[in-house]
Simulated scan of single mutants.
Amino acid sequence: MKNKPQTTLIHAPRQAPQYISSIQPPVFRASTILFKDTDALFNRHWTDDYDYSYGTHGTPTTFTLGDQIAQIEGGKYCLLTPSGLSAINLVNSCFLSQGDEVWVSDNIYGPNMEHLRNLEHRYGIAVKIYNSIDADSFKPTGKAKLIWLEAAGSVTLEFPDLIRLIEKAQQANVLTALDNTWGAGLAFNAFDLNDQHLGVDMTVHALTKYPSGGGDILMGSVVTRDQKLHHQLYRMHALQGVCVSGDDAAQVQRSLASMELRYKHQSQSAIQLLNWLKLQNEFAQVLHPALSDSAGHLYWNQVCQNGHSAGLISVIFKSDYELADIRTFCDSLKLFKLGFSWGGPLSLVMLYDLKDMRQLENAHLQAGLLVRFCIGLEHPDDLIQDIENALKQLPKQHHK
């Protein structure tokens, strides 16, 4: 039968072979996925490792990326989400119900805390706060369902007592979820932390950061080793219609080959900046897990045995500097640009007032306004010069 031109435009008479061998895998863009026959339609189940039934459930492009992220993190199963925060919300909505208790560190990622407070207000989920460097402050009751771990802590970069916190959670039958964006699966294996193979139940990762590497793709992941947990998450993932585009997945996939090289470079550049920042009189405190006087350094040294420490540094200015002074400093930077996130080629800076961010007393933190540096791929000497020039713009009476 010869079709009309309009039909031929949709049902092409010839089709090139679908697979070739190439460095980068092909990109699949699909909402509808066609079944070969009714056997293929009905002899499938959503728990299959690769359920090709609809675009939201996955394509070869998204499954390939998920498999690689799971391997990097030390897990077995991975679900991709449109952002790191959506991955966090997937975990919360999957495992928390009315009357449950969830434990979060005082230095948790701010939007996660905001989301949990919303769940507390609307659904009666009790949010409890613990000190990440004091495992004894984690006191789960029989209602405790989930504990969020942050390594290192948001903004102030305390490294938690991961091993003791996980041990306590397991003893209380509490699920452990680690925001592993800082470590990126490269600083340590969250699923195998010590000789006893102690590990978390699941990790969440903002692939927006180091895996993407370009500051232009939003994506997140949830990785597990346990099939039962994975199926629970996968079901919620499907019910919520959570998915990522094939083009975005391919962009992240393309960046994975250089991720460890970029991570190591930014980590090493951060160490070089640390040595200089510690000598500057304007700072009351420099915060970074690799510093021996930083909170949680012993715990960092315990699990990050390869010495990796990401590319984030926070400094607390001496308390006699006012907000206007710190704003002048940030505005005077040329290479560091004002912006959230990290892991891209461009160095970033952001300022914070900890009084608005913390609920517990943090005796290990000096008084003063905080600035966080996110180290990019520029030469560290140039970044040091940029900070030095900006410090010169501070009021002269503060220089000592």
Rank of each mutant, 00 (worst) to 15 (best):
P5Q: 04
Q6P: 11
R14E: 13
R14A: 11
A16Y: 08
S21F: 08
Q24T: 04
Q24E: 10
R29F: 01
A30L: 00
I33T: 02
L34W: 02
T38F: 02
T38E: 03
D39M: 12
L41S: 13
L41K: 14
L41R: 14
T47R: 05
T47L: 00
D48H: 09
D48G: 03
D48M: 06
Y52P: 06
H57C: 03
G58L: 00
F63M: 00
A70M: 09
G74I: 05
G75E: 10
G75C: 12
C78D: 06
C78V: 15
S83W: 10
G84S: 05
S86Y: 12
A87F: 02
L90V: 01
V91P: 11
S97P: 04
Q98H: 14
D100P: 01
E101K: 05
V102P: 10
W103H: 05
W103I: 01
D106E: 02
D106F: 05
R117L: 14
E120S: 09
Y123I: 04
G124F: 06
V127Q: 06
I133Q: 03
A135T: 03
F138Y: 03
P140I: 00
A144V: 00
L146N: 07
L146H: 07
L149N: 02
E150V: 05
E150H: 02
A152S: 13
V155H: 12
L157M: 07
P160Q: 03
D161C: 04
Q171K: 07
T181D: 04
T181F: 01
A184T: 14
G185H: 02
F188W: 01
D192E: 12
G199F: 08
V204D: 07
H205S: 12
T208A: 11
K209L: 09
K209M: 10
K209G: 06
S212Y: 11
G215C: 04
I217F: 06
M219Y: 02
V222C: 01
V223T: 11
D226V: 11
H237M: 03
V242I: 15
D247H: 05
D248K: 12
A250H: 07
Q253R: 15
L256H: 10
A257V: 02
S258Y: 10
M259V: 09
R262P: 07
Y263R: 02
Y263S: 05
Q268F: 13
Q272F: 09
L279N: 04
N281A: 15
N281V: 12
Q285C: 07
N301C: 09
Q302K: 12
V303R: 06
Q305W: 04
L312Q: 15
S319Q: 15
E322V: 14
L323S: 10
A324T: 13
D325Y: 05
D325W: 08
F336D: 06
W342K: 10
W342A: 11
G343S: 05
P345D: 06
V349E: 04
M350K: 10
D353Q: 13
L354G: 07
D356M: 12
D356F: 11
N362K: 07
H364F: 12
Q366I: 00
L370H: 09
I375R: 05
I375Y: 08
E378M: 07
H379W: 07
D386Y: 03
L391Y: 06
K392N: 15
L394K: 08
P395V: 06
H398F: 01
H399C: 04
